[in-house]
């Protein structure tokens, strides 16, 4: 195991990314405990104040007097949770769908991948608006609409990868040894997919976070008074000239998260793709 992680100690960017991610997550979880304010609490005495130490409004307040430090960290929690959960769901559906299609080949693969194509061809924002209208605005809707699309690319990646694996001699050897299909998939196909899948997953998380931010920015995602990085930025944009801190705090966190995930993903790709084995 030590050998597996050795590359990580040498890859400064990936290590910095992972450390940054861990600190952000820790801050998002523990930070609000240090503040006397709650997410939806109004401070009538200080509306729209700039960041400072006064009354513990470290990131300032918004136009309703809500504390931005607490709200930004709440937004980070929402964004990270959606990013990780939606990626996990897209990972599960995408890998299962793609691996079965790729391993089966022939007509089944054709049918399964055409379903993916149909989903792909739906205009995404229109699809989300339709879902929001029919299911109502809620984090669950947001989750479904992101998940419904997130697994498609994963399924394609996994399907193509599995197809190339299927023709490898070690898979043929497993078939010729009489291994049951399930065992071949679990023992031989999935572990050999791990590299590309893991890399793609780390690249999916920032994508999902950006989609959430974008949807919330449009008013389709997380709704007031709950906070997400997206709707915080939407409000911040409206007040950009008079209260720039409202935009800067959530933006800084979003950029930091996306960059850090990008570094970790790049590190994994560099390590796993050239197949050092």
């Amino acid at each position: 195991m030590r050998r597996r992680w050795h590359w990580f100690e040498r890859d400064l960017a990936a290590r910095a990314g992972l450390v940054a991610l861990a600190s952000i997550a820790l801050l998002a979880l523990a930070g609000p405990l240090a503040s006397p304010w709650r997410v939806d609490e109004l401070d009538w005495a200080r509306i729209g104040v700039a960041p400072g130490l006064e009354a513990a409004h470290w990131f300032g307040t918004d136009r309703l007097g809500r504390d931005l430090f607490v709200r930004t960290l709440a937004g980070v929690r929402v964004s990270l949770a959606i990013g990780l959960l939606a990626t996990l769901v897209s990972l599960l559906i995408g890998v299962a769908w793609g691996a079965i299609a790729g391993y089966a080949g022939g007509r089944l693969e054709g049918a399964m991948m055409r379903v993916v194509d149909v989903f792909y061809s739906l205009p995404y924002v229109f699809f989300v608006i339709l879902l929001t209208v029919t299911l109502g605005r809620s984090p669950a809707t947001l989750f479904i609409s992101i998940g419904a699309v997130g697994w498609l690319t994963m399924a394609r990646v996994v399907c193509a990868q599995t197809e190339s694996l299927r023709h490898k001699e070690f898979i043929e050897a497993a078939v010729a040894a009489g291994l049951p299909v399930r065992r071949i998939l679990v023992r031989h196909v999935l572990p050999n997919l791990a590299g590309p899948v893991l890399v793609y997953a780390t690249l999916t998380v920032p994508g999902v976070i950006l989609i959430e931010s974008f949807l919330s920015f449009l008013g389709l995602g997380v709704q007031e008074p709950a906070a997400s990085l997206g709707n915080l930025m939407a409000q911040g944009t409206a007040e950009m000239e008079s209260a720039p801190w409202m935009l800067l705090a959530p933006c800084a966190f979003l950029v930091a998260i996306v960059l850090a995930l990008g570094f970790v993903g790049d590190g994994l790709r560099d390590h796993l793709d050239p197949r050092e084995r």
Partner: peptide, 29 residues
């Protein structure tokens, strides 16, 4: 009725140790 393929490296799962590869047929049979 078993088989030995042409490319020795490609015919072994890169993720399995030698003992695990040889164990595969035994686990089934």
């Amino acid at each position: 009725l078993t088989v030995v393929f042409q490319d020795p490296v490609a015919s072994l799962d890169p993720r399995l140790s030698v003992a695990d590869s040889i164990a595969e047929p035994l686990i089934v049979h």
